[in-house]
Write a protein that binds this DNA or RNA. Structure first.
Lengths: 241, 241
DNA sequence: GGGGGACTTTGCTCTTCATCAAACTCGCGG
DNA sequence: CCGCGAGTTTGATGAAGAGCAAAGTCCCCC
């Protein structure tokens, strides 16, 4: 994928097309976008790298250009759980939107990723200057809040198998790419990761995936999952047996 | 408590002091508050009454004046879980702030309650006109998001006893009132309610409370709980045994 | 090409907690 | 003052899934 256009100097310059298609910026003029880009810092993160950490000073906000992120919380006891995933085109680390001074969770690159970021003081500029930017951001926040509530209720009421099925489906919906076999989750996921999304153990997840594989619902290799019969998973997650 | 001051006519008129102390309105002048109040609808809800329901059109936003609310989500299967509690002085039902057109959860009065509300179209007026209103609202939202994430991680990683202890502590912190015996939760809570907060059953909660009562940590009667040894509960919820 | 580490699988045991069942108690309305 | 219903208590049972152990497999890096 092409993200960077080399300028005459050997300093890479970001291309306007990066932002023009994304909701938070879609109504802006080219010069506006140019200005926003010129204020941004672009950076690459390799798989497993931390973008920012829970509790640290929230001095920048981010936009994911390419890759996938996990947003994670850790308990004092060291257990961690994955609160949500971020896909390309989404804003994240937008603590400033909520008047927070620290990040409420940690972001980790689930795959090699590229993100733009801006210093937090620009947040109020952006929302004040660019019509629709604030609106879109809050919409994002709203749906994210909804997602988390959804996860919470699942966690509280559903048995492990349903939760795991729901988690897999959520990843498929967010990042599924069609293959000849079925729909593949576009970023690396370990059994451990799934257990961190569902509050169970990697053992249990492994058993479930094995069972589903036998039943012809999924195919999986290391860190990769292809869902061949999504409908079956929906059935499992609904308990509509 | 006195909330209503009767005007010359027999139409009740809301007193400015209602709002002047609350963060979202604290920087406003009296005439501004007067105007806000005049646009508000005030209403009483009895215990168990529904203020609004998940999925319904979000046509108003609210401020709780007195009482306590439970914010609840229900699964297709009929299980419900309590996402958070609202105390007096807090805004709620602020779906408009997130550009949502429907409420993401249901609000139920945990005790007899009084709330003000405004039509959703005023939201943009408020945020545009009154400096600090938006800021405060988003701060509220931010801390609420944090709370839910907190609950989620607990739910995913902690054993039942810790979760229940944490839930009781959260209620105590939010609405505890000192009594001669200890700190009392200020609104009615059933075992069932607590189990709905923690994703367990009323049986398990009952057993735990009985055990804690024997250990001298709490005293409880029907729908009411007094914590006599908060520190012990903290110990239980941390696992710092 | 051959470690070696990271990821996965699988079996077994044991705890926790949901579920079922039944009795008890409080408080309210008739 | 009685009876009913909502809330609570307690016991017994069983199943789900965590924890522990150990071996297998893939992939990356040297």
């Amino acid at each position: 994928m092409l993200f960077i256009k080399l300028a005459d100097q050997n300093v890479p310059k970001l291309d306007e097309s990066l932002l023009s298609g994304l909701p938070p910026f879609s109504c802006l003029t080219r010069p506006q976008i140019r200005k926003i880009l010129d204020q941004a810092r672009s950076r690459r993160y390799e798989e497993g790298a931390e973008i920012f950490r829970e509790g640290h000073e929230a001095d920048r906000f981010f936009l994911l250009l390419d890759g996938y992120l996990r947003v994670v919380r850790t308990t004092p006891g060291g257990d961690q759980i994955i609160v949500l995933h971020i896909s390309p085109g989404q804003l994240f680390g937008i603590a400033p939107a909520l008047q927070r001074e620290t990040y409420p969770a940690t972001s980790i690159a689930a795959a090699e990723s590229i993100a733009l970021s801006w210093p937090v003081r620009l947040w109020s500029d952006f929302t004040a200057t660019y019509e629709g930017f604030a609106t879109e951001s809050y919409k994002t926040l709203g749906s994210r809040l909804g997602q988390i509530q959804q996860t919470l209720t699942e966690m509280a009421t559903q048995a492990v198998e349903k939760r795991v099925a729901a988690a897999v489906l959520r990843m498929v919906n967010q990042s599924g790419r069609k293959t000849d076999k079925g729909i593949e989750i576009a970023f690396p996921v370990t059994r451990q990761n799934i257990s961190d999304m569902t509050g169970t153990t990697l053992h249990t997840v492994s058993r479930l995936l094995s069972a589903w594989e036998k039943a012809g619902i999924v195919e999986s290799t290391r860190k990769h999952i292809v869902v061949t019969a999504p409908h079956q998973l929906v059935v499992i997650s609904n308990g509509t047996d």
